[in-house]
Write a protein that binds this DNA or RNA. Structure first.
Lengths: 146, 146
DNA sequence: AATAAACCTGACGTTGACGTGAGCGTCTGA
DNA sequence: TCAGACGCTCACGTCAACGTCAGGTTTATT
């Protein structure tokens, strides 16, 4: 029970949903938006998800809940990530970088740094909120005793 | 331009919207949900917002964007906040606390501490995300030079 | 007194992120 | 080999959080 499908080392959509906490519908929807294409299908057409696919789902959900990005914004981030992987893969072959590759790198770097700004701002805001909250709690406790 | 209405020291809904970044519709909607009732109306029925009202809007928006709470959840938090104010106000009069007051305090305390858990969890997750992101950026830069 | 700008209350429309069901094919264990 | 579980593709439904009119009122200014 709760196992990989056959000997493939892959998961069916049910297991994938169970393991990620997303619904099956959500997984299919992410695919519709081009966010996550399962690494394989069976000859009969059933989706098969790899561990990497599950990690991708986790990333999507984090970008959603932690940063409050919508799925279109997340798509941008993911596509940038994907291009980085491509570039890394292509790196083995071509040795030196073409101008095109440099441009992609630059673009990706900018996006990630923009993301960094966002995360840092959010973290700062959260810290402010936290100390405010601690103050509130202290005042409540103060009202409680005595 | 962009000023308080008359000599009242209060704002019309337009100014309130401009100052908080929320739309007029959003402000009316918050009121529908009982999240925020403008402190006054003109004899003719137009809403007047105080600075405290604007602060309340800011709080709502923070709970939304920072913690990802929905407006119903926010309503719970706000009502708890309001009850704290009531209790504080009543405190001046009654001297010692009734059992009822103690119960309200306890309830409020629990809610705020639950909120605290949430915020701390979120902060931790954000920090993880942040270091991950910094790693990504470092690797991109590494690919760039050389 | 009159005009424009700001605001009012319904009430229906929109958008994102799925939920839900129909009707049908696929896979796996006994 | 076949029953039951699992999955597939449409396609319409839902829900929160507003957006966007319409048709009338209030307020500020001239």
């Amino acid at each position: 029970m709760g196992e990989k499908v056959a000997e493939s080392g892959l998961y069916g959509i049910g297991e994938a949903a169970a393991r990620t906490g997303a619904s099956e519908r959500a997984l299919r929807y992410y695919q519709e938006l081009g966010l996550l294409t399962p690494c394989a299908r069976t000859p009969g057409g059933m989706r098969r998800y790899s561990e990497a696919d599950l990690a991708r789902v986790a990333r999507i959900r984090e970008l959603q809940s932690l940063l409050g990005l919508n799925l279109d914004e997340i798509a941008v981030v993911m596509r940038s990530d994907d291009r980085m992987s491509e570039i890394k893969a292509a790196y083995q072959g071509t040795k030196a970088g073409t101008a095109e590759r440099a441009a992609l790198l630059e673009e990706s770097l900018e996006l990630q740094e923009h993301l960094l700004q966002l995360v840092q701002a959010k973290k700062a805001a959260l810290e402010d909120f936290l100390s405010d909250l601690e103050g509130r709690i202290a005042r409540i406790e103060e009202l409680g005793e005595r």
